[in-house]
């Protein structure tokens, strides 16, 4: 990795995004760690990036009360059941 990148937030935030989804190379990891040590903005970005992912993931699942974020409307539910029933009677 070129030396000039040692001060580059654009590059660092790209690596942060990448790190969440895949493994970084040794050089990338090294650069990122050092950068984050002294860059307050990128430190925040890194935290928030993780938070965003966790939030999206948990919104997509049931909460502790066993509720989903969204529920099918009663009409839609009835319609789907009717469609399935019709097909089962008449495959």
């Amino acid at each position: 990795m070129k030396l000039k990148l040692f001060h580059n937030c654009k590059e660092a935030t790209l690596l942060i995004s990448k790190r969440e989804e895949t493994e970084l190379s040794f050089a990338e990891n090294f650069f990122l760690r050092i950068h984050i040590l002294y860059c307050k903005f990128c430190r925040s970005f890194s935290k928030q990036s993780r938070l965003l992912k966790q939030s999206l993931l948990s919104l997509n699942q049931k909460n502790e009360k066993g509720e989903y974020t969204l529920n099918l409307s009663d009409e839609k539910r009835a319609l789907l059941k009717k469609e399935i029933e019709r097909h089962l009677k008449n495959p």
Binding site: H7, C9, K10, F41, S44
Partner: peptide, 13 residues
Amino acid sequence: GGHWTDDRGPKEW
């Protein structure tokens, strides 16, 4: 240089 600009850098949440 590719630094965050001061007013667009992430704030603490």
